Computed example of a mutant assay.
Amino acid sequence: YKILAWCVCAVFLGMAGALTGNLVGFIDPRELAFAGATFGVWMVVMAILGGKGTLWGPVIGAALFHLTQELFWTYLLNWQRVALGVLIVLIVVLFPTGIMGWLRDYSANRRHMTGSPTS
């Protein structure tokens, strides 16, 4: 099972690399493999934003984080790093359980307030 999981991951990684190479036109392994210290921080923020311990949480967190990152880089010119720092603080303070955890808690509170039976 481990080898099969590794092969499936390698297929998706190869497809992503092919798309990146086609889009960029040039691939330097040092830039992609060692993207810097902020790359690791961004991965953690994506997982926290979406919700840790869930399958779809990090996927949703990655999509939202990349969307806001692109918007910041497009419209905030030289202030994009400051805006990303503020976003990280807001995520940690306002969504400590992530979006999926917030949705789970919101639906549980809503069911509790309406008197619907829980399953």
Rank of each mutant, 00 (worst) to 15 (best):
R110T: 05
H112D: 06
V24H: 09
H66N: 13
W79D: 08
V24I: 15
F72L: 05
T54D: 01
V11P: 00
K2A: 07
R104M: 07
V8C: 05
W73G: 13
L71E: 06
A35F: 03
L90G: 01
W56G: 09
G101R: 10
Q80E: 04
G51H: 09
T118I: 09
M46D: 07
T114G: 01
L67P: 05
R104V: 12
I60Y: 03
V92L: 15
R111D: 12
G98W: 02
V86N: 06
W102E: 01
K52V: 14
H112K: 11
I27H: 03
P117S: 14
N109L: 03
G40L: 14
F72K: 04
D105N: 12
S119V: 00
R110I: 03
E31P: 07
G25T: 03
L64N: 00
V45D: 04
M43Q: 02
I27P: 00
N78F: 09
G21M: 00
V11H: 03
L64I: 05
V86D: 04
G51E: 10
K2P: 09
V8W: 08
F12Q: 04
G40I: 11
S116L: 12
D28E: 09
G85H: 01
G115I: 04
A33P: 06
I60F: 03
G115K: 03
L4S: 06
M43Y: 08
Y1A: 15
P29W: 10
L64K: 04
Y75H: 11
E31L: 15
L77E: 11
A10H: 00
T68Y: 07
I88P: 04
A5W: 09
V59Q: 01
I48Q: 05
I88V: 15
V44N: 08
G53E: 04
L103W: 03
L67D: 08
R110W: 01
V93L: 15
G61H: 05
V89R: 07
V92P: 08
T118K: 13
Y1P: 12
F39I: 04
L87N: 06
R104S: 14
M43E: 10
W102Y: 04
Q80I: 00
N78W: 11
A47Q: 13
